[in-house]
Nucleic acid binder design. Structure first.
Lengths: 106, 106
DNA sequence: TTGACAAGCAACTATATGGTTGCCTATTAT
DNA sequence: ATAATAGGCAACCATATAGTTGCTTGTCAA
């Protein structure tokens, strides 16, 4: 049930982009996160609310600003759900190789 | 773009359950996967089609049956996107601890 | 060879979801 | 004080999506 919120939250590309931005720089405000994103501030606020409900981000108020922080724990949960302890080394090796060859897609 | 399909596919609880079933026993047919799932066979077929499009499962035809196999590679991709190399040990330790204390939810 | 079983295809419906506009509240700075 | 800035709330719209029913195709066994 908590996990359902996590997956729903990750299903949207705009929300994933917001997470990426937070990963690049933690503790940004709503306006900062939304700047340049071809979407109204209200839309961004909704996305951040979902991410917060899913526990993928934590927030803290500072004056009139609201700061947002990435929480990686739920992602870890996804990983462990379908990837067995003994597959992990093999998959990591594969992934490292792929990254070395290509050079980042998505 | 390929990753978008993966996240969309994982967003639905029925599809996650199908993945869980495949993780429990690999190589099941459509009917086997759907049995007991309070949903028509056609609905299951649609879900499996999405999972296959997302490359989360691979399929093989055997006579009139279609066998389904779990592919964990895209899950690995999610993990590595938001969890830095140096956070991994810490998060795994946390997760192991949590599992030891609680005993599996969701 | 004909019936039963496994799966595929297509149209339709209801609801969930992403995004918008418009307005209100709270904090900071002049 | 008051204007500007940062954010919150609510109603509304369009589309995406999960699920259904109904029918067709392909394969196996008696």
């Amino acid at each position: 049930m908590g996990m359902d919120l996590v997956f729903k939250a990750l299903a949207d590309p705009s929300r994933r982009k917001l997470l990426d931005r937070l990963r690049a720089r933690n503790g940004q405000t709503l306006s900062e996160l939304g700047s340049g994103l071809d979407m109204t501030r209200q839309a961004v606020a909704k996305h951040l609310a979902l991410l917060e409900a899913a526990n993928l981000i934590a927030t803290r108020k500072r004056g009139r600003e609201k700061l947002h922080y990435l929480n990686p724990v739920p992602i870890q949960g996804i990983y462990e759900r379908w990837i067995g302890k003994f597959e992990r080394n093999r998959l990591r090796a594969l992934s490292d190789l792929k990254k070395a060859l290509e050079q980042g897609d998505d």
